[in-house]
Computed example of a mutant assay.
Amino acid sequence: MNTSTTPLKVLADGTEVPATDPRTDHVAILFPDTGWMVARDALTNADGEAHANADAVDADARQLHLLGFNDWFNAPLDEVWLRHVLKHDRYAPAVDTNLFPDLPTDDWYWTGTAAPWSSGSAFSVLLLGGGVGFLRRDSSGFGLACRRARQ
């Protein structure tokens, strides 16, 4: 595994370029130090709006076919969101907008991490300030698809 800690932008043809590359036509971001790949765009409904609930986000992630892979799932809180996506030195949105240039900020993002105290709840992230909380899974929200790219 590559031990670099610098993310790479992955273009639609699979080409990897440094995160510092000014292009924003990439479709995913690869984090070589952990092997996680995260889709650049939010999981949304057909109208580009938040999904009705967490189950719809999870299903959308599982149906994603990107870069020739179909093993995508909704990003977990600790391994992906807290380690790679959220940037607490940024606000509105609390992400690196060079890596994630167009993420909507008008609703929560569901993580793939269930709340251990309630089967009907899961952890969620608000990009306007980088807050992490939990909501009932029947609430609306976006998601981010990810996969293990290198192990």
Rank of each mutant, 00 (worst) to 15 (best):
N53R: 08
W108Y: 13
T105D: 04
G68R: 12
V95K: 04
D89Q: 11
E49F: 08
A52V: 15
N53T: 03
S119P: 09
W108N: 03
Y109V: 06
D47C: 04
F123P: 00
T113G: 07
P93W: 05
A59L: 12
L82T: 12
K87C: 15
A56I: 01
Q63K: 14
G68D: 06
T97E: 05
D102C: 05
T105K: 11
G133I: 03
L64F: 01
A54H: 14
D60C: 13
L128S: 13
H88K: 12
R83V: 14
A75F: 01
D89G: 13
L66Q: 05
D71K: 06
P101A: 04
F100M: 02
T113K: 06
A75M: 02
N53W: 04
N74V: 12
S119K: 11
A46G: 07
Y109F: 14
A75T: 07
L86F: 07
L66G: 09
A52S: 15
D58S: 14
V95W: 07
V57D: 05
V85P: 08
V95N: 04
L103N: 03
L77Q: 06
V125C: 06
R90L: 14
A92T: 02
H84I: 02
G48H: 05
V125I: 10
D107S: 15
A54K: 15
A52T: 14
A114S: 12
H51T: 04
E79P: 07
E79H: 11
A75I: 04
L67E: 08
D106K: 07
P76Y: 12
R90F: 09
L66T: 02
G68W: 08
D96Q: 07
R90V: 05
N98C: 05
S119M: 03
L64I: 03
A115L: 13
A59V: 06
W110A: 02
A94G: 10
Y91R: 12
V132K: 09
S121P: 00
A115S: 10
S119Y: 01
N98V: 03
F100D: 01
L77F: 06
G112L: 05
W81C: 11
N98G: 14
F69I: 00
L86M: 08
D106C: 07
